[in-house]
Design a protein around this nucleic acid. Structure first.
Lengths: 217, 217
DNA sequence: CAGGATCCAGACGTGGATCCGT
DNA sequence: ACGGATCCACGTCTGGATCCTG
């Protein structure tokens, strides 16, 4: 699948996915569904990349680079409300950028959300894909995201890792992002001291993605 | 196999390998010989690491770290003379070190050479392992290695990649070191200009390893 | 119920080296 | 003969995310 040439083409493709089951889409694309997704957590996200023509690969770029649009799945519980926080990107050290140059802003300035059923009572093959939501942060939302990012980035820069827990931030938080808790990385704090810390990533809290889903209805 | 605790223990192990065929050693270690080594060029080197208890993995350290000894195979032709140049290490950019702190010196200050038969007329399973040579550069050899390294490093630092060919250097040379010639890396020259260059590595010329073999007899 | 922990795929880098055309 | 090109293994890193226990 070639990358979409326009926002319209991308949205046409996304609208055609709405209502399909995971089994149906994977069959169309010639992929085998995994038995369970406990061990292949990102599988559906990668299937949707393929279905929509996202340029695959682990690059620090939007999924649809020419359009400046990021693709994100939005897992829903039995009440069709967002079920989980959403990973945004890894936190780089050092980070002496302004908000508008940050990886977080670049990822979130325009997002195509694809809701997907994630109620454990529905079998994996039978779960359905929802109607896409093309979203940009409102000025209110961006203001709070920026505040959160600046607070978290300040703590990162200073090297105050002990107090840098997932409890900080209104919409945006930092949490571990690694294979497991034994993975450590060297970081340098403002006193030029080296510390070994667990790599961290930025995540959107569930309360925020609930807001996005609600306002799109 | 645990790492050897002393130079004596390492040499005992290496002496016990002398005379064995590749087939014999791989059987002892429970490994299957590859059909051909055109596609698994480093296979025997890794078998010897296993046989001698080298700490596996791609680290910028000597193979036997506690002993400060590097392990190298020395492929011999039908005349039992070194057949190929020997890879030492990759060239880092930037490199503003002194010789004694350089990766090249750290690798070459003490080397355990294991000669191996590499005459294409001998079938791979029947090729034999030779008697080990524990080597340190003589002051004459080190002087020339240092001169070569300084000349090559100077060209790297200045960014004179066009003239940085494999023709430079008496004992030590630089050659491409990558999966293929399409692999490029960003380098920065002394004018702070960015260039895309093929990653390079340091190699010992065959004439030099011939000298090592000859003087060990 | 959410903060901390974890899982897979694929790209990439490094160390093990030898291949091969001119 | 040798300078430039290439090949495999494997550990690490990143991007895709969800799991799971107090």
């Amino acid at each position: 699948m070639q990358p979409p040439k326009s926002e319209t083409e991308l949205m046409n493709r996304a609208n055609h996915l709405a209502g399909k089951t995971f089994a149906s889409l994977s069959k169309e694309l010639g992929k085998n569904l995994p038995e369970n997704l406990q061990t292949e957590k990102g599988w559906l996200g990668q299937l949707l990349e393929l279905a929509l023509g996202a340029t695959a690969g682990s690059k620090p770029e939007p999924d649809f680079q020419q359009l400046g649009i990021e693709l994100k799945t939005l897992p829903l519980n039995a009440q069709h409300q967002p079920k989980e926080s959403t990973f945004v990107c890894t936190a780089k050290l050092p980070c002496e950028l302004e908000w508008q140059q940050s990886n977080v802003y670049q990822k979130l300035k325009k997002v195509l959300w694809i809701p997907i059923e994630a109620d454990p009572h529905i079998s994996f093959p039978e779960r359905r894909i929802g109607a896409p939501i093309l979203w940009q942060p409102s000025s209110e939302q961006e203001k709070i995201l920026q505040q959160d990012w600046e607070e978290l980035t300040e703590m990162l820069t200073v090297g105050d890792y002990q107090h840098l827990t997932a409890k900080i931030g209104t919409y945006l938080q930092m949490r571990p992002k690694a294979a497991n808790s034994r993975v450590l990385r060297t970081a340098i704090d403002s006193n030029s001291e080296q510390q070994l810390i667990v790599p961290r990533g930025f995540y959107l809290r569930t309360c925020f993605t609930k807001q996005i889903l609600t306002s799109s209805i």
